[in-house]
Computed example of a mutant assay.
Amino acid sequence: MTERREELAANLADVEERIAAACAAAGRGREEVTLIVVTKTFPASDVRILSELGVRHVAENRDQDAAPKAAACADLPLEWHFVGQLQTNKVRSVAGYADVVQSVDRSRLVTALSKEAVRNGRELGCLVQVALDAGEGGRGERGGVAPDGVAELARLVDGAEGLRLDGLMTVAPLTGEYAGRQQAAFERLMDLSADLRAVHPAANMVSAGMSADLEQAVAAGATHVRVGSAVLGVRPGLG
């Protein structure tokens, strides 16, 4: 456990250094960017170590892994983010532990999340997931609503009981005009965020960037970066 703690502490320090350097290069304060550590596939013991090391935001993408982990770590001062594609049959479980659902991409999901948030007496933060690889009115390969659908979905979230519209999220596309152009993709997301904030001023969260492209996300203006492997190492089963 001591060895793992040292490994995580060193990795976390490296990532912090990268974020600080990216903020400095962009003329931003380090406090403008929040690190979310993506703990998917890693055990609750790692989450506990991360919490001891000062991490306050963790993310998961599969309810079957996240629910027991969140329960095992319920005593920790953590904010849990759900970042994966969310099926409506998992909403009841996710609404019980997630503080923020970053992958809201369709009206049915808004309805289901609202119902469960009210049932649990909780307020759920929601980000509209934007698919920059989606055609007009379509959805992306990894979930998300096309840019032209953001305003309507945001309106639904804002009007839904038990939900709080926090902002936007994207994953850099692997296909389409933004493939290999992460910074351009994130700048497009910032344009969409500006449009959103004109109508919903409080929805100022922009979640973008992961281990490989967090610098581009910070340069574009992201408020939150989602980092997994750079902190936790190669995922179990992937080498």
Rank of each mutant, 00 (worst) to 15 (best):
T175F: 13
A219V: 06
P201E: 08
V225G: 00
L214Y: 02
S211L: 08
M190E: 13
R106T: 12
K115G: 05
A112Y: 05
R181I: 07
Q129W: 01
A117R: 09
Y178F: 15
L165H: 05
L124S: 10
R188S: 13
E161N: 12
R164C: 07
G125M: 00
E177C: 03
G149H: 01
A208M: 15
A131Y: 04
L189P: 04
K115V: 04
L113G: 11
H200N: 03
R142G: 01
C126R: 01
S114R: 05
V225S: 03
Q183A: 13
L109E: 09
F186T: 00
L189F: 08
R139M: 13
H200G: 04
E116G: 02
V206D: 00
H224D: 02
A222R: 04
A185G: 12
A198C: 10
V150P: 04
A131P: 06
G221K: 11
M205A: 13
R106G: 10
L163G: 12
S193R: 15
L124N: 14
D166C: 14
A151Q: 08
L132I: 05
V218W: 01
F186E: 02
E177I: 07
G138T: 07
E123Q: 14
E152A: 15
L132V: 06
C126L: 03
D158M: 07
V199K: 13
S114N: 03
L196H: 06
T111H: 10
A203D: 03
M210G: 05
E136P: 15
E215N: 12
G135S: 04
A194H: 12
L156Q: 15
A160L: 03
L156D: 08
N120M: 10
R188H: 14
G144F: 12
L156Y: 00
P147T: 10
E123N: 12
M169F: 02
Y178D: 11
A220G: 07
A220D: 05
G143H: 07
E215Y: 01
L109N: 05
G149L: 11
L165W: 00
